[in-house]
């Protein structure tokens, strides 16, 4: 059983794949599925750039084997919204200066989606706590916090 056959759903599409057991979920997503929006920033579970939603919950795909995700539904940044139908978070990240170099952005959007699913109207403090697993070196986080607050207001019909 050096290999594992996966039946998963990725961004709504069913995927069958045969992977080595030691394949990380992050490698599987980036290399095998060529979904390169999921980034590699530290490979030690700190920076959050590799965050994806697994059954709706954000986790760090560099800390997880592809084999562990068997049977799960995975949403990567590519599945969060599309060019013509952006997720409110994507819109507000653009409008509020929630990104600069963009390298951390997919991970923050995933973490933010997870946060708003758990807590639709977070306070600024709760937003900051919700981002404690993600690093950004460009924005100073202010634009990101502002963006999440704005998206939460939009999503709650303000």
């Amino acid at each position: 059983m050096r290999r594992k056959t996966l039946s998963i759903t990725v961004n709504g599409e069913p995927v069958e794949a045969d992977v080595p057991a030691n394949r990380l979920l992050s490698e599987f997503i980036r290399e095998d599925l060529a979904l390169t929006g999921t980034k590699r920033g530290c490979e030690t579970g700190v920076c959050g750039a590799c965050s994806v939603l697994v059954d709706g919950k954000a986790l760090k795909s560099c800390l997880c084997l592809a084999a562990q995700a068997d049977g799960a539904s995975i949403t990567t940044i590519e599945g969060l919204g599309s060019r013509d139908d952006l997720h409110p978070l994507q819109e507000s990240f653009m409008a509020c200066g929630g990104l600069q170099c963009g390298y951390c952005t997919p991970g923050f959007l995933i973490a933010a989606a997870d946060l708003l699913a758990r807590n639709p109207r977070p306070s600024d403090d709760e937003i900051r706590q919700g981002l404690s697993g993600n690093l950004c070196r460009c924005t100073g986080y202010q634009g990101i916090v502002d963006a999440i607050r704005e998206a939460s207001e939009k999503m709650n019909g303000h």
Partner: peptide, 9 residues
């Protein structure tokens, strides 16, 4: 403890 992603896993 830790951070949201690690708590989820």
């Amino acid at each position: 403890l830790a951070n949201p992603q690690v708590r989820n896993q």
